[in-house]
Amino acid sequence: MPYKRWVKDEIDYLISKYNEKSIIAIADDLNRTKDSVFKKAKRLGLTTELKYWTEKELHFLIEKWGKKSVGFIAKELDRSVTSIRKKANELKLGPERIANGEFLTTGDIGYLLNKNPSLVYRWTRDGMIKGRRLGKKKVFQIRPNHFINFLKDHPNKWCANKARVNLIKPYFYYSNRSNVPEWFINKVENDVR
C-alpha cells in the first residue's frame, strides 16, 4: 500500500478519539492500517510510556484478585483495566468472572478444582453442589458459599494437590468467613503429603 499523507481532519479525529476508541477502530474509521494509526499517535505524543510492574504492584494484584473488582484494582494501581486483565492472565490468576462474579458456573468450579466441567455439572445436577438453573441452556449458577459447603461435605471428590488452592481461598471471604477454616488447611496439608 503506498504512503498516504495524513490530513488535518484525520489528525484531529485521531487526537479526539484516541482515548475513546481502540487503534483498530480508529484505523477502520480512517481507512488506514493499525500500524499507520499507532505510528502517527506515537509521533503526536498520544501514546504513553511503557510502565513496568513493580513487586509491590504485583503483590497487590495477587492479593486483591478474587476479593476486589478489576476496576477497583486498576484504580488503586493507577493502571488501565486492560493492563490489569493482561497481567492477571500472564500470572495465571484465573478467569475474571471467577475473581469478580457473584456466582460460579460448573466450568468455573471445574477450573478451580482441575476437574472436567461435565463432572461438576453432574455433581450439581445430582444435588452435591447446590445451584440454580439459568435459562434454557440449563447453566447452573452456584453461590460461593455453596461451593465451599461442597468442598467441606465431599472432601473425597477433590484433591488439593491438583486444585488451584490459591484461587479457592478468596471464596471463604465471599462466604462471609473471616479466614480459611481448619478443615480446609488440614485437607491441603494431607493431600500435599
Rank of each mutant, 00 (worst) to 15 (best):
76 E>G: 03
51 K>S: 11
67 K>G: 04
70 V>F: 03
38 F>E: 13
47 T>A: 02
66 G>W: 03
63 E>M: 14
37 V>K: 03
45 G>R: 04
75 K>Y: 12
69 S>I: 03
67 K>H: 08
43 R>W: 02
77 L>Q: 09
47 T>Q: 07
50 L>M: 00
36 S>C: 05
52 Y>G: 00
48 T>H: 15
71 G>V: 05
61 L>D: 08
48 T>I: 13
75 K>F: 11
46 L>P: 03
76 E>M: 12
50 L>I: 00
71 G>P: 02
62 I>Q: 12
54 T>C: 01
44 L>F: 08
58 L>S: 11
54 T>M: 01
63 E>G: 10
68 K>C: 13
75 K>R: 15
57 E>Y: 04
74 A>T: 12
37 V>E: 04
64 K>A: 14
40 K>E: 08
66 G>P: 03
50 L>S: 00
70 V>H: 05
66 G>Q: 01
70 V>A: 15
68 K>A: 14
50 L>E: 01
44 L>W: 08
47 T>D: 04
49 E>A: 13
64 K>P: 05
67 K>I: 14
74 A>F: 10
41 A>D: 07
77 L>S: 10
60 F>A: 10
37 V>Q: 03
40 K>F: 00
58 L>Q: 13
47 T>P: 07
43 R>N: 08
74 A>C: 12
36 S>E: 01
75 K>V: 08
61 L>G: 07
62 I>D: 07
63 E>T: 15
45 G>Q: 05
43 R>A: 07
44 L>N: 09
71 G>F: 04
42 K>Y: 07
68 K>P: 07
68 K>G: 04
57 E>A: 08
66 G>R: 03
64 K>H: 14
51 K>L: 12
76 E>W: 04
76 E>D: 10
58 L>Y: 06
66 G>N: 03
58 L>E: 15
40 K>T: 00
71 G>Q: 09
65 W>A: 09
79 R>F: 11
42 K>R: 13
54 T>G: 01
47 T>L: 11
43 R>V: 03
61 L>Q: 08
